[in-house]
Design a protein around this nucleic acid. Sequence first.
DNA 1: TAGATTGTTAATCGATTAACAATC
DNA 2: TAGATTGTTAATCGATTAACAATC
Lengths: 218, 218
Amino acid sequence: MGNNKEILNVSKATIGRLPAYHRYLTEKLAQGEKTVSSTAIAEDLHLNAVQVRKDLAVISSVAGKPKLGFELSELIADIDRFLGYDNVTDAVLVGAGGLGSALVGYEGFKNYGLNIVAAFDTDPSLIGTSVGGVKVFDAKELSKLVRRLNVLIGIVAVPRGAAQQVADELVEGGVRAIWNFAPVHLTLPENIAVKNEDMAASLAILSKRLAEILNSEK
Amino acid sequence: MGNNKEILNVSKATIGRLPAYHRYLTEKLAQGEKTVSSTAIAEDLHLNAVQVRKDLAVISSVAGKPKLGFELSELIADIDRFLGYDNVTDAVLVGAGGLGSALVGYEGFKNYGLNIVAAFDTDPSLIGTSVGGVKVFDAKELSKLVRRLNVLIGIVAVPRGAAQQVADELVEGGVRAIWNFAPVHLTLPENIAVKNEDMAASLAILSKRLAEILNSEK
DNA sequence: TAGATTGTTAATCGATTAACAATC
DNA sequence: TAGATTGTTAATCGATTAACAATC
């Protein structure tokens, strides 16, 4: 997923903004536009124009043209390549309940270069069924099947209490990256990539902004 | 949600870490511990000890004690108060489908001081039903009901295409903060707080870390 | 007392923004 | 040509980390 060489040395902040650029550019292209300026992107996305140019410079193979701006199709292709949207990576989903099935459906991860090849659950009524076209296996088989499928990314969408064990089993099966949706801090080996989707943290930040806004109006 | 005075001037980074501290401390307390040192927190949560102390200093009413550390129950109560976990704020959910219903269920937002008082959808088969104890109303009534309920926070869990209009209607109804789960950039007035839950951005960052790790092993 | 741990001041690091010459 | 827009260098900002005296 993404070229190893070039993905290094790029700031996390920049990488986090690339998907938003991608959506924005794709939309502009669909509207019939051919080019766009960093000034316009910055204004619409509420960013700084220099920041936009620096971000684009990191991933783009071609320079923008003074007066004209950047060519949409080229820029989109560059982000596709950089983020690996053009070649999918396999992943497994653990927890096929509410959140898990919502994730499978959520605008299709395939657009983001992620292909969920199998789901796992402990609930007998779910095992053997399909959620969003993905077959649900018995969680007992997790590490064994993960190893057999040679999957590197595991998505954890189980309740708090089960998350650590699930993560351990994923690692045992050979997974090297864990996308954790359970509100727990996972303890894992150094050489495993972890991304916590901490809803409480997001909510806290939103609440802060709200408090600031309400406060500024008093 | 949270005291307006004190919530200001606290860095976004610090606020984002508070929920993780809260979970960690609660767990320690449940394990029968009475106190904890910043050193221990830092080690377990993979943070820097000075950073932990600075974060805690921001929200804590009492100082830690050299040699002993911090009192768990006091620290937890302080975070509760700071993040507003002790008094709930009302919110509405728009989109009662897969993602929406998963969100309502997700470990119960009430623990995080958020009370979802109503859900909305356009799907006739959902209108009138309940998801996770929350009644689903016709999306046509959105702005009217939001105004009547006097709700300040709206959660957007609808497909891409509907998100902007839903957001506009929420604002029309008087909402001042929007928690957006749809993968679109919303265009909204200045004085509205927005938090985008960008799955693609998270995935991109996880992929980067994975690439780095794999790369370092070659 | 001795030493683990605290809170604070200063140094470093990384990311954002401002200034500006180059150019299509 | 004139001017919008680019890419780059320097300045600023914010957050993290290092150093260290104070103290239970």
